[in-house]
């Protein structure tokens, strides 16, 4: 088929940040499907809690303090996370490097406290279905936490190499910020389900 030029795209930029980039949409799609996983796991938890004559089943409610500390750490991390985002948008290398180091530390800190959350549940996964669901919910969120911290660490190293001076890499930093928000946001309902639902009744 013959062709005739109708539009000249030569002046278009070679990268776009945020919703202008396909990676941002890919990240959003992965959040949607992982969020569905969270919602269904939480739904299963509520379903079993609704059917059960007592909840928690046969043990005292979990000690909420390690979980509360994780919650506070995660909420506090949102501020530097968004400061980092602003520097990533401006493609400013030095502050982005500092921000990534800060975010790597703020990712590792809740993971350390998370270690103490599992014993604070006061029950094992194989004791009964209540214990199973607590471990499943906590495990699901921990997987996301580990994944994003791993991603942040690799990205931090990458930004200290010559590969960092590229619009795409700054876009990756922005998407990492975006995903961390998701990790923080999903902890809010999971935290309430694990620590406060058993205290309702």
């Amino acid at each position: 088929m013959k062709q005739r030029p109708a539009a000249d795209l030569s002046e278009l930029p070679t990268f776009g940040l945020g919703p202008r980039s396909p990676t941002w949409w890919g990240t959003l799609a992965f959040m949607a499907l992982e969020g569905t996983g969270f919602a269904l796991a939480a739904g299963a938890y509520l379903y079993l809690a609704y059917l059960s004559p007592e909840w928690p089943l046969g043990v005292p409610p979990p000690n909420h303090w390690p979980g509360t500390i994780v919650m506070l750490l995660l909420l506090a991390s949102v501020v530097p996370n968004h400061i980092l985002n602003r520097y990533a948008e401006a493609c400013a290398m030095v502050p982005v490097r500092i921000g990534l180091l800060v975010m790597a530390l703020l990712g590792i800190a809740p993971l350390v406290v998370r270690w103490f959350e599992f014993p604070a549940l006061n029950i094992y996964w194989d004791t009964n279905a209540y214990g199973s669901m607590l471990w499943v919910l906590l495990g699901l969120h921990t997987t996301h936490l580990i994944t994003d911290v791993g991603d942040t660490l690799v990205l931090t190293v990458l930004m200290f190499t010559r590969h960092g001076y590229s619009g795409r890499r700054f876009g990756d930093v922005g998407d990492n910020v975006f995903y961390w928000d998701f990790v923080v946001a999903t902890w809010i309902p999971i935290y309430l389900f694990i620590y406060w639902t058993p205290r309702l009744g």
Partner: peptide, 20 residues
């Protein structure tokens, strides 16, 4: 998980549910 590590999510004897 139920089969491998002994969770009880689908086990009615320990608070689980098969219809889930």
């Amino acid at each position: 998980l139920d089969r491998l590590v002994g969770t009880h999510i689908f086990n009615p004897a320990e608070g689980g549910d098969v219809l889930l």
